[in-house]
């Protein structure tokens, strides 16, 4: 099939690429942009590991075609913080044992970043609903809950 030219801004940098229409945004980020922090678990919209921000909204990058992101602004886990300058959510996940094997963590951190931006002072029930779109197969949810509570406190 004919490749299509797309232009996006990924973590603030302009990116231009030629892609097959069937390429997902997740594969585009990983294989074309070499941003492998966006993880792929299920590849059909169940696990949330590939969550990124698309024009500021948290979405599953495996359920967006790269061609649909033409003209959009994308933020991946790499765009949220640096190893020596973690974002408040990343900091809270580290401090509160919010990760075990780490595979699901990029998706959780991106989801939680969007969730707390829109719900700065959530109840525990709201946090659980906000986390429901991400699966942690180590089942380390209590640490994640603590991390989200702490991140909510640290970002007034």
């Amino acid at each position: 099939m004919d490749e299509i030219e797309i232009e996006t801004r990924v973590n603030g940098l302009a990116r231009r690429g030629r892609v097959e229409p069937r390429l997902t945004l997740a594969d585009y980020l990983r294989e074309h942009c070499h941003l492998t922090g966006t993880h792929l678990g299920c590849e059909h919209g169940v696990c949330g590991a590939c969550t990124v921000l698309l024009d500021g909204a948290a979405v599953r990058a495996c359920l967006v075609l790269a061609v649909q992101a033409d003209g959009a602004e994308v933020t991946t886990i790499e765009g949220l913080g640096e190893p020596d300058a973690l974002s408040p959510v990343q900091e809270a996940f580290r401090d509160h044992h919010g990760l075990q094997c780490g595979f699901c963590t990029p998706g959780f951190v991106v989801s939680v970043t969007a969730f707390l931006r829109d719900n700065p002072d959530p109840s525990d029930d709201e946090i659980r609903a906000g986390l429901s779109g991400n699966i942690c197969r180590c089942t380390g949810y209590q640490g994640i809950m603590k991390a989200v509570r702490a991140a909510a406190r640290s970002t007034p």
């Binding site: 909204a57 948290a58 779109g133």
Partner: peptide, 12 residues
């Protein structure tokens, strides 16, 4: 609306 999938799904 809140019963539909998760907020990431509802954004799309």
């Amino acid at each position: 609306t809140p019963f539909i999938g998760h907020f990431q799904i509802r954004n799309r």
